[in-house]
């Protein structure tokens, strides 16, 4: 792996100062844990003349539990998140997703915000400069065509964060700080289905925190498929949240990762409300999942496998939650 290019390292003490610095230095990047950004910079995938370190911003490391809302700062590490008592007890999908990211050593550095903003990935992009040059580059960096969809006008690199689908299923919102102040939007609106511009985040905006309801009656879970049991990014990842009304489905939410350029909240599942969880309901869920995802040749593992495995994993998790929720 190559050496890091030269850059200035700035260490603001507040989020407002970080946003001001980002605005003052157009060729800058925020760094939190750095577990994804630094290898990407060393491969020449990301460049920056100024790197703004968020490590010293205490306000972004807070977990606040107010009434029925949990607010988690974007700089909270995944290890802290996975061990938080409220998250473990009330939002198990979030704890499981945080624990599914990479390995334990990464999670001590990697952050909630970093995983939500994770650079999209593709087997034609996450390679050395030498490899990419020998393969005529790709649209995401220095090339003209998307190598997995050559006729397409857009890039199909896959979003591969584990935490985002869990938070989508749990109904989270994001807080974004920009020069004009704080704006809030549902997490689903934070993402764009485009491998090159996958975040609805302005150039001088900073993801500050995530808020989510602590609603009663919900059970949730997250699981991913990967080649090895640790370190690897998801081939597909599925988060499920279920509210059971006696013998019928109150509400079912499913979100997937690794199978589109954004984490996908599966639409159409509200038609299952009031119905029992039987084979017909699971078949309906499978139909909506297959319609909602679009795995491409972004990994060495084949598209048909990921397309078939995603609903299988989802149905397995729904059945497990159904039994838990009774």
């Amino acid at each position: 792996m190559g050496a890091l290019s030269e850059f200035r390292l700035l260490s603001p003490a507040s989020a407002a100062e970080a946003v001001r610095l980002r605005g003052a230095h157009p060729a800058s990047r925020f760094i939190a844990g750095g577990t994804d950004l630094l290898p990407n910079m060393r491969r020449g995938l990301v460049g920056a003349e100024v790197v703004i370190d968020l490590a010293g911003i205490g306000e972004m490391r807070e977990v606040q539990h107010t009434g029925d809302v949990l607010r988690i700062g974007a700089r909270v590490t995944l290890a802290t998140l996975a061990a938080d008592a409220t998250v473990l007890a009330r939002l198990p999908a979030l704890a499981q997703a945080a624990l599914a990211v990479a390995g334990p050593t990464h999670r001590n550095a990697a952050t909630l915000g970093g995983n939500l903003c994770l650079e999209t990935r593709c087997q034609y992009f996450n390679q050395s400069e030498h490899w990419r040059q020998a393969n005529q580059y790709c649209m995401k960096l220095a090339g003209d065509v998307c190598r997995v969809a050559p006729k397409s006008s857009r890039c199909y690199a896959a979003f591969s964060g584990d935490v985002a689908p869990a938070l989508l299923a749990l109904g989270a919102d994001v807080e974004i700080l920009g020069p004009q102040g704080v704006r809030r939007l549902p997490l689903a609106e934070f993402y764009v289905d485009d491998g090159m511009r996958w975040l609805a985040l302005g150039p001088d905006e900073l993801l500050l925190a995530v808020t989510m309801p602590l609603a009663n009656g919900w059970v949730s879970t997250y699981e991913k498929l990967r080649v090895r049991g640790a370190i690897d990014f998801p081939l597909t990842g599925v988060a499920v949240a279920l509210r059971r009304d006696g013998d019928t489905i109150g509400e079912l939410r499913i979100a997937c990762t690794g199978v589109s350029s954004r984490p996908e909240f599966i639409a159409g599942l509200d038609e299952l409300a009031g119905k029992p969880l039987d084979d017909a309901a699971l078949a309906t869920a499978e139909r909506h999942i297959k319609r909602g995802i679009q795995p491409m040749e972004t990994t060495l593992v084949s598209v048909p496998y990921r397309r078939r495995a995603t609903p299988v994993l989802a149905k397995r998790l729904v059945r497990r939650l159904w039994d838990e929720g009774s």
Binding site: I31, G34, A102, P104, H106, N108
Partner: peptide
């Protein structure tokens, strides 16, 4: 080792927690 955060050969402790020295800026 791998020099990209995939093998753990560079693991050191930072305030008692294991961290990857190859994916950590010294000044951080």
């Amino acid at each position: 080792g791998c020099d990209g955060g995939e093998c753990g050969a560079c693991t050191v402790l930072v305030d008692g927690q294991p961290r990857l020295a190859c994916s950590t800026l010294a000044h951080s």
